[in-house]
Design a protein around this nucleic acid. Structure first.
Lengths: 248, 248
DNA sequence: GTCATCGATTGATCTAGGTCAAGGGCTTTG
DNA sequence: CAAAGCCCTTGACCTAGATCAATCGATGAC
């Protein structure tokens, strides 16, 4: 796998990710223009909740910069992350009017939004936008199911390695690898958020990260800055059959 | 919640579920007719694999009767069920040409199929079919994410209760509850398949079912026939916040 | 400069669920 | 009807990860 393979085809031009990833892969210019007219930006601070599960959600959006999470919670407080939104990811449920999960900004966040109503009208008027949405939803479904394998069957160490691989791959899509072939990135999540992602406790996350560091699978500068000297080794630790998979 | 609430609006007429659930909620008669012309039936025996992950899959289909499962496997044999197909469920990935999971018939199975190519053309020609597909895929995504909460955060007992609740609800959609308000159904899965669904071992499944029986949450006639005297009690054991959720 | 606060680490201990092993009904086959 | 498979149950034990608790920086407030 080369660095080129990691580059999502969608991020090579323009300023607003939604143009490429979500909607406009095959847009004619006049449709693009209508989208441009519809879009607006919103910012959120780290920690801020964007919508609560069950709330009315009258927009769809694409993450421009920053990280957000989708989480589900039980009455007693147990929480499970069910989606991780990285830059260029899409959020929103055309055809549904309430949110099914809590959406929370875990870093400062910039989102490119469209009011849902006109977006849906545009979807109906421009069938291939609907097709694109279907494709993206299928991607999300694949990611969710890969994640289910992780939650149900992987060990704590494999879970951590999987998460690191996902973030490394997504991050490498934006930057290039260092000259020596090392992958370098910052963890966008606290230990607690990682635990909620992986179905673990934050203590176990901390221990396993320490273990991977001790065993030379990763290097750590500070608490968040990670260097992966050998990505294949990391994939191996993750127990991933497919090196491609896991779209998130 | 009444029994009426449990009835999917889609199963009240006709002989072929795909007509209702998957595609034709708003079909005009000529489109319906074209679909009728396209469809064909396939049968599989219990235990038979329908497609292997990675194989070419040149059809989409809807389950008419019987049960099928979607599973993912690691090289060392650990397996996780990622989807459960009950009658009227749709399977297939318009726009993708290979299967992402193993699809296996766990009982004798009758499916109503459409060759993928003409189905996709129909989808393009009839936008609201695409919309319906998007809606169904969003439902599946919701189910997958509910399932993630189960896998990541629920105890073994809660997992079992959740699964029983899902099957009971789906089964009750087809039959009515017994006069005394009890729900009665047959488990469509072996203990092993339940374990693969829930991220447990078959021994733990067996023990927890025994425990629920001992505690009067369920009654068992034989190994598979289940009576639920009090559905709310079961939901309570499942730890479900929403009594609605979990579409599968 | 001191005191909170927040995230992270690390240790000690406990336990839910996994693992290994031995039957116990069933159905199917010859 | 014996033999062989399945599928399921139950018991005895073990371990991965949870829980409880102490400590350690950073960072920021006053």
């Amino acid at each position: 796998m080369t660095v080129q393979d990691l580059l999502p085809s969608s991020l090579d031009c323009g300023d607003c990710p939604i143009r490429h990833r979500a909607v406009c892969a095959r847009c004619e210019s006049d449709e693009l223009k209508r989208l441009e007219e519809m879009k607006y930006y919103k910012t959120y601070e780290a920690g801020q909740t964007i919508v609560w599960s069950g709330d009315r959600m009258d927009f769809v959006a694409s993450v421009v910069s920053g990280i957000a999470t989708l989480t589900q919670t039980m009455e007693d407080g147990r929480t499970q992350m069910v989606g991780l939104l990285l830059p260029s990811d899409f959020v929103g449920r055309p055809g549904r009017d309430t949110a099914a999960y809590n959406v929370t900004a875990t870093t400062d966040l910039l989102m490119c939004c469209f009011r849902k109503k006109p977006f849906e009208e545009m979807m109906i008027a421009t069938p291939h936008i609907g097709q694109r949405l279907l494709e993206m939803t299928l991607d999300e479904l694949d990611a969710a199911r890969e994640w289910m394998l992780l939650l149900g069957r992987k060990t704590a160490r494999e879970k951590i390695a999987s998460l690191l691989a996902i973030v490394a791959r997504r991050d490498a899509s934006l930057k290039l690898k260092s000259p020596e072939g090392k992958m370098v990135f910052d963890l966008p999540l606290t230990r607690e958020a990682m635990a909620d992602y992986l179905g673990l406790t934050l203590e176990t996350v901390s221990r396993q990260i320490s273990a991977l560091k001790r065993d030379g699978v990763i290097e750590l500068q500070g608490k968040r800055h990670v260097t992966v000297p050998d990505f294949d080794r990391l994939l191996d630790e993750a127990g991933d059959d497919s090196d491609g998979g896991f779209l998130v």
